Amino acid sequence: MKQFGGPVLFLDRSDINTDEIIPAKYLTEITKEDLKPYILEDLKLPGFDPKGEKTKTARVVVSRANFGCGSSREHAPWVFEVNGITAVIAESFARIFRQNMFNCGMAAIELSADTIEGLFTYAGCADAAISIDVAGQTLTISGGGTSETHSFDISPFDKALVLAGGWVDYADSKY
């Protein structure tokens, strides 16, 4: 079974759009793997380096509200997938981006603004990591010698998609 979680990339801004996740000029690439080097290339945040070690080692992204807004395209979740990111945690998601995450077998977890604010207190910890139990609908963040666990909601169908590995694997098992 797919493991969800690992080192965290904190992106402290709302309204991160799909053009910042994967610039439109790369949408002509032939394979998902071809998208890999361009992850978050156009995202401008103080101190953020899209080619940096934190981006390369991240397995979870934590952000603010309205993540994945803008143009609707599967390429945005795909670039996360090929870079080993298994989950994005935010206050809210653009509807199509969120569903594309589930369809690709990745977790899109919505938490309250207060809970997200609490997760961001770990941003300064070099060892910040999140483990996610999709079936149990909990996540645990750890770093700097402390940890905390939070529950999250996900619809039964979306949970089934994520646990199956995405829409294609789910359909293969059901039909």
Rank of each mutant, 00 (worst) to 15 (best):
G84I: 03
D42T: 09
G68D: 12
A87K: 00
D49M: 07
W78E: 14
L43K: 04
R64N: 14
G68E: 10
V79A: 04
E74K: 14
I39W: 14
E33R: 00
E33Y: 11
P46W: 15
T55A: 14
A90G: 10
G52H: 03
L45M: 09
D49S: 08
K32P: 10
F80E: 09
V79C: 02
V82I: 06
T55K: 08
S72T: 06
F80I: 04
E33G: 05
L40D: 08
T57C: 00
R59Q: 15
F67W: 10
R64G: 15
D34S: 13
E91Y: 09
A58F: 03
V61I: 15
I85L: 06
G52V: 03
V82S: 12
G68V: 02
G84M: 02
V60M: 07
L35G: 08
E41I: 04
V82M: 05
V79D: 01
R64W: 11
D42F: 00
K44D: 14
R59M: 12
V79S: 04
F67H: 05
I85M: 06
G84L: 03
G70I: 02
K32S: 14
P50K: 02
V79L: 06
V62H: 09
P50F: 06
R73W: 15
P46V: 06
L45S: 15
W78V: 04
H75W: 14
D49F: 11
K51G: 10
D49V: 12
G47M: 02
P46E: 12
G84D: 10
S71D: 04
E53V: 01
N83T: 05
V60A: 05
W78A: 11
V82Q: 08
T86A: 13
K54R: 07
K56M: 08
F48D: 14
V79P: 05
P77Y: 07
P50I: 09
V88C: 12
F93S: 01
K32R: 09
K56T: 11
K44M: 11
A87Q: 04
A58R: 00
T57V: 11
T57G: 02
V62K: 01
N66A: 13
W78N: 09
D42L: 00
L43A: 14
V62E: 07
Y38S: 06
T86S: 15
Y38H: 13
A90W: 07
S92L: 02
E81W: 01
G47R: 04
G47W: 00
H75C: 09
A90F: 12
D49N: 13
E41T: 05
V61F: 08
W78M: 12
F93K: 07
C69I: 08
L43Y: 13
G84C: 02
I89E: 09
P46C: 11
E74T: 08
K36L: 08
K54N: 15
V88Q: 07
I85F: 14
D34F: 13
Y38K: 00
K51Y: 14
D42Y: 01
D34N: 11
F67Q: 03
K36D: 13
S63K: 01
D49I: 12
R73P: 09
L40F: 13
E53S: 09
L45F: 10
E81M: 02
F80R: 00
I85V: 14
T57R: 05
C69Q: 11
K54V: 15
K32D: 15
I89N: 04
S72G: 10
F67L: 04
A58L: 03
R59C: 12
W78S: 10
K56I: 05
T86Q: 06
E41S: 08
